[in-house]
Design a protein around this nucleic acid. Sequence first.
DNA 1: CTGAAAGCGCTTACAG
DNA 2: CTGAAAGCGCTTACAG
Lengths: 330, 330
Amino acid sequence: MNKITIRDVAKEAGVSIATVSKALNGIDVVRPSTKEKVEKAAQKLHYVPNLMGKQLKGKTTKMLGFYTTSMTGPYFSTLVNAIAQEAGKHGYGINVFISYDKQVVLNSILGNVVDGIIGFEDMLTPEDVAAMKQEKVKTVFIDRKISSETIGSVVFDSSKTGYLATKHLLSLGHKKIAYISGYDGVYDNEERFKGYLKALKEENLSFSSDLIYSGYFEEKASYEGTKKFLETSPQKVTAFLAGNDLSAIGAIKAIKEFGYDVPKDYSIVGFDDIDILEYFSPSLTTVKNPIQLQGEMAVKHLIQLINEQSVGKEIELKGKLLIRQSTKKI
Amino acid sequence: MNKITIRDVAKEAGVSIATVSKALNGIDVVRPSTKEKVEKAAQKLHYVPNLMGKQLKGKTTKMLGFYTTSMTGPYFSTLVNAIAQEAGKHGYGINVFISYDKQVVLNSILGNVVDGIIGFEDMLTPEDVAAMKQEKVKTVFIDRKISSETIGSVVFDSSKTGYLATKHLLSLGHKKIAYISGYDGVYDNEERFKGYLKALKEENLSFSSDLIYSGYFEEKASYEGTKKFLETSPQKVTAFLAGNDLSAIGAIKAIKEFGYDVPKDYSIVGFDDIDILEYFSPSLTTVKNPIQLQGEMAVKHLIQLINEQSVGKEIELKGKLLIRQSTKKI
DNA sequence: CTGAAAGCGCTTACAG
DNA sequence: CTGAAAGCGCTTACAG
């Protein structure tokens, strides 16, 4: 598309390409008059450097990559905006790659397209991560707890908050609490569940597998799952711990459909404190995760890794239980 | 970060770099045994081609760029996902660039980083667009109506829908209708306003500038603006046409705060039909824009432009008025 | 202060 | 079927 190169500018200005490069990049001493001549020529020709050529030499792209299969989920934009803003402060642009093709993603990750990576990508397996480690790709994961020389992570303390949320329900007198799980293998899901189990155990309450069902972190699946659970479960629960707010909303809709009330008949707690809660009734008791902070920290740590000012660290962010209207004493 | 190159693979496999390139890309005839040898070597060394070098030659990146200053707005993820999905079908990845630095954006746009661009970027001025036109950068805009040989656009027929929405209010007997505007110079805003004016004119209703105030397409600004409007306006309006759903929500919140009811005291119409309306009460009468379709069409048209199967076209998508609970007869 | 030359990692006619 | 060589657009020691 863009065919004028440094060579054309050089010809136009009557200098060498080396001089054009220096003049335009402000590197090395170049006589002001020459510099001006070059700039005029560049402008006249609408010259824009080809980043491919530039970066092939330069080795640095001043770009951070953010990889994901899809941009769904209500806090996605909060996260990405926080990342973009923080990156901007450090002179980096951010590059969101959306692809369902793992090979494409891996090639791009390992293909020197960006200086560092923020990983939020379930499809990356431990083997992929091992390859990234070996290639010393600077990466900060925000969906798993991990670290190596060049890999860090910024996650929420989901085990702790899962514990706190469950404790809250227990303190209200609930003894049979269902867990609406997200995806297996997903860090936040498993940690939240661990916290839930720990809280139960502390009260010497037993857990049986029919207290857990899948909501897949989304409203619809949780709605369906909850309907089925209410119909078929032998357990008479009085409260639900949902893997996230979306699944809490789905569960509440199902509960209402059965003619029950929240919190009168069932208490329910979510995770995230997403924006749409503002429009939802009853107002949901939930755990607020500092998503914005997570984005910022991830970028800051990534830039440390890129500049080799630090080895990879595991950073854990604290969430906060927000008690609202969806939970009450039994 | 990634230092093993094609040369290392060649040495390991005992062949030339040309052969490595051919074997790995499946180009040209290469003996199966050689191919296997090369693949083994590449695997052993964890070789991943440097995309910079590759693309410098190849001239094509199989990537589409999506440019924006921020990813806010509730339909953003719908749009980007639609774009990503459609691009995937055609073998393209998508690249979301978020940057506040216009120079960075322009360099990237014009720097051959992507094969084509989907523009959704208010900060691009007509001069910038002129440069893109001159450089024959393949682009489809979704925030303005425009076309040239290499530039197309896919927009909503906002003038028409603005007209229809206003007609709806008029048919319910409303004669004084306020317009809560978005940003000046933004296509959808201006078109919606045009449609509004046209509908008023048809009924021989006069418009005066104190019937319009700014909501900036967001909830908060619209809320504040509406409060002020209700307090100070000399006009006794009975209905509001909001620039989008978010500003409609803000207006309704302000109206409620003054002790009025929607639709009993005021009717209100929005635009977009965003997801969170599901949680909002009263259910909002609004214009549903086919956002997903817009993303798909934009990608399809962009790929036509890239393959030079078509010159730039101006594509207009129809919206649909959804009559719900926020409007009623006066 | 300026320029010729080497080289970044790759692909692709062209010879053999 | 394989490889030496040129070249994509740029930067950067190195000479002058």
